[in-house]
Design a protein around this nucleic acid. Structure first.
Length: 807
DNA sequence: GAGTTTGAAACT
DNA sequence: CAGTTTCAAACTC
């Protein structure tokens, strides 16, 4: 089954389509059984794998020495999962790139089934320790889907479904997955283990045991392996980081043997599962079904990847990540690698990850395009087992619900110069232990630091990847996509797509950055947000972002900063170097493309707009507006200035301008504004914005000169200001020179303090006498005037005295 | 800062 | 798809 229809694929950004095709081939031939290893042996956590279909299951186990199924990966790509444990689990893949899985210290992996019913209900079940998921790794998509099953019941359901999902079982409470972006960028999956001992962390709600966390980080990068550290909140310590399981997929550059690549995930492929007809009812791609009983709420995270070719698409493939009994936090960060011209073969990766009470659905576009991740969570109470919540589907029909989060539960933070929006999703009802104060967790990435939510009933920690690291991995933010899904016990979710996606439906991953999707009805506290990829860059500047306010989102505006997206193809550095201009919308409610903020996928912040709906408080309207825009133009949120055929020099407007009177030499012209020349697709009249245009050259020359002047003036002002400040701070005025010292030279520190005391005294006096504010201000100003007069007088006297002495 | 110009977006 | 209207930014004074 095709996850994404061809139509949808056509709508995808070019960069997505350009990705190398990595073909995930069902591996019927390898009939290996899923290996299970339960180092922990914790009773609470089922150690055995529930793999009805052992052959096609993908299993991650620390101890498992076997890997069963070959996972076909595009020839260039390599998937590696490493854990500290030395037991290598290798997964043979049909393709040359080997997939190796090594278990984490105590983690065990069990394969389970995940079923997606035609009705759209997918249930992934397994023991807490089990990860069940139809597992698909498509190099093209650079995503790895893990499905985590929370409850054994879910496992049962999965079995019933009959799909041979690939199961990844992890005892650790944390799962970190890093996906590779396009061109040869490694995908790293890290499965941090909450506790050194398996099964220990499973106790949910235990303050001592960190809440289970699941993190997926997709970083576009070259072949180099960069284990992203997901510091899942506080719980990931440096030591823990070492325990993380890392799956790395490198395109084109297979990991050298010398490379410390260890595979912690064993992937077994069930031929049945691979078969389209899979016993599993056709899974609606991208559709997330959440079933949870009040007692055993289940959460499913499904990642699906669209295919351009039906052959490549593997319906029913799912990767399940073993759920955590304890409230789990899921963080997914994916950064798409720079676009590659690789074949557009895509592999559908529907992944369902059931995490205890959460269901996360992620669909990935066929290409290396920005990773798309959708997360929906439903409250366990409202959702019955078997009940499904659709979070994003390939087809619009699959998109059952997108509901804005309750305003009080959402906070947005925008960081200037960054494409990322920080979104805080708070569930008031639940208090999570995730906020445990811990030093900055360290991961394989040393600089990575978690965002810590210190206050509020719900605390959410978002691993922040230092910009440096991110840059290394994803040098080109524009093409890269990052998604972060954070699920805490409180059911918080954060999704950060790197780049605006053309469509909101059926794949909600197409939502523009900053989009926050609310949980399905009844889902209550859960929501998900789409955040721009440069989020990571922001992190660099502020390693810790505190999303802490228990108060409602509106109150959090103070911490909001403006996030920006690259404008019109300008380099990220260009766009991020200066803050975006505030909008002044008055009639559009900032929900139309007239609004630059909205058009850039940003929330309005510090703008001058009136009746603004471009914020989390009006997420419903915003989502609707986004959908409307995407319906009208699937590429509405794509950068208008796309890459040219060969580098930036060929950048051109995707649609071309239609200027009539400006000669395309004013900023009215989008081409000119983007500092690019008009092209053949432009419909402008009287265009003067071409290479040989003398007017253009003159303008450019003048513009350059003006810029230089501005810089010089700025430098001069800075210097002058510094000098004045330095002069004022001098404590000892120089009066012996006999020169004409100005009065301010007598404004020494002592004089300033005395003046301030006088003013304060005056203020107190006014307050004691209950003077009106205006009168109080008058009194203070008068006092200030007196002070000045005394200073001037003293200066003059000193000068006179000095002169007399000299005489 | 107010008013005008401009062209993209939205609408018909 | 073309024509018109709406809108907000760019620009002018």
């Amino acid at each position: 089954m095709d996850v994404v229809s061809p139509e949808l694929n056509s709508l995808l950004p070019d960069e997505i389509m350009d990705t190398e095709a990595i073909e995930d081939v069902p591996h019927s031939h390898s009939g290996t059984t899923a290996t299970q290893s339960e180092p922990s042996g914790d009773t609470s956590v089922p150690m055995e794998t529930d793999t009805p279909l052992a052959t096609e299951n993908l299993t991650l186990s620390s101890e498992a020495t076997e890997h069963t199924q070959a996972v076909s990966i595009s020839t260039d790509s390599m998937l590696s999962i490493s854990s500290r444990s030395q037991i290598p689990i290798s997964i043979s893949s049909t393709s040359s790139p080997p997939l190796t899985l090594k278990p984490v210290l105590a983690t065990s992996v069990a394969t389970t089934k995940t079923t997606d019913s035609v009705t759209g209900t997918s249930v992934t079940t397994s023991g807490l320790q089990k990860l069940t998921a139809p597992f698909t790794i498509s190099p093209a998509n650079h995503q790895i889907i893990l499905n985590k099953v929370a409850s054994s019941q879910a496992t049962e359901a999965a079995k019933s479904s009959g799909t041979p999902p690939q199961v990844i079982k992890q005892e650790g409470q944390k799962l970190l997955v890093t996906a590779i972006g396009k061109s040869g960028q490694p995908i790293v999956l890290q499965l941090p283990h909450t506790g050194s001992k398996p099964g220990v962390s499973q106790t949910s709600g235990d303050a001592k045991s960190p809440a289970p966390q699941f993190k997926v980080v997709a970083i576009g990068g070259r072949s180099e392996l960069k284990p992203l550290m997901g510091s899942a909140g506080n719980q990931v310590t440096t030591l823990q980081a070492q325990q993380l399981k890392t799956v790395q997929i490198a395109k084109k550059t297979p990991v050298s043997s010398a490379a410390p690549i260890k595979f912690i995930i064993t992937k077994t492929v069930n031929s049945k599962g691979l078969s389209p007809q899979a016993s599993v009812p056709p899974v609606i791609a991208g559709r997330v079904l959440t079933q949870s009983s009040p007692v055993m709420p289940q959460r499913t995270i499904s990642l699906s990847e669209t295919h351009n070719t039906s052959i490549q698409s593997i319906p029913g493939k799912k990767i399940a990540i073993s759920p955590l009994k304890t409230p789990s936090k899921v963080t997914v960060v994916s950064v798409a690698s720079p676009t590659s011209n690789a074949s557009q073969k895509s592999v559908a990766l529907p992944v369902n990850v059931a995490l205890g009470q959460q269901i996360l659905t992620v669909q990935q576009s066929t290409s290396a395009s920005p990773v798309k991740l959708a997360t929906s969570q439903t409250t366990a109470q409202n959702i019955k087992p078997g009940q499904s919540v659709a979070v994003g589907g390939v087809g619009s029909s699959q998109f059952k619900t997108i509901i804005p989060l309750p305003q009080p539960n959402v906070q947005q933070i925008q960081v200037p110069g960054s494409r990322f929006h920080y979104v805080r999703l708070v569930t008031a009802t639940t208090a999570s232990s995730t906020g445990q104060p811990s030093g900055p967790s360290t991961s394989s990435i040393q600089t990575a630091k978690p965002m810590v939510v210190s206050t509020g009933a719900v605390r959410m920690s978002v691993p922040i990847v230092p910009a440096q690291t991110i840059k290394q991995v994803a040098p080109k933010p524009l093409t890269s996509a990052a998604q972060v899904v954070t699920t805490t016990q409180t059911q918080q979710r954060l999704i950060m797509p790197a780049t605006p996606l053309p469509q909101i439906q059926p794949n909600f991953t197409n939502l523009p950055p900053g989009t926050v999707l609310a949980p399905a009805p009844g889902g209550g506290n859960v929501g998900y947000a789409v955040v721009p990829a440069q989020y990571v860059t922001q992190l660099q500047q502020s390693p810790f972002v505190t999303l802490a306010s228990s108060s409602g989102f509106p109150a959090a505006t103070g911490i909001q900063t403006q996030a920006r997206l690259p404008l019109n193809g300008l380099s990220t550095s260009e766009t991020t170097s200066r803050p975006r201009k505030p909008c002044n919308c008055t009639k559009s409610q900032c929900l139309k493309l007239y609004c630059d903020c909205f058009a850039n996928g940003e929330f309005c912040n510090n703008c001058n707009c009136n009746n603004c709906f471009n914020n989390l408080e009006h997420e419903t309207e915003r989502l609707k507006a986004i959908k409307t825009c995407l319906d009208r133009n699937p590429e509405a949120f794509k950068p208008k200035i796309g890459k040219g055929k060969e580098g930036e020099s060929d950048r051109r407007h995707s649609k071309g301008c239609n200027c009539k009177r400006s000669g395309c030499l004013k900023n009215y012209c989008e081409c000119y504004e983007a500092k690019i020349m008009c092209s053949s697709i432009c419909k402008c009249i009287g265009c003067k914005n071409f290479e040989e245009s003398p007017e253009r050259k003159t303008l450019m020359h003048l513009a350059d000169a003006a810029e230089v002047r501005v810089q010089q003036q700025t430098a001069a002002k800075t210097k002058l200001s510094s000098q004045i400040s330095d002069l004022l701070m001098r404590t000892t005025p120089v009066i012996s020179s006999g020169g004409g010292r100005l009065p301010y030279t007598f404004v020494t520190k002592e004089v300033l303090e005395a003046t301030c005391e006088c003013l304060l005294e005056q203020a107190k006096k006014a307050e004691q006498t209950h003077q009106p504010q205006a009168e109080a201000e008058r009194m203070i100003l008068e006092e200030f005037g007196h002070c000045l007069m005394r200073i001037i007088s003293s200066a003059g006297k000193a000068k006179a005295d000095s002169a007399s002495v000299s005489c």
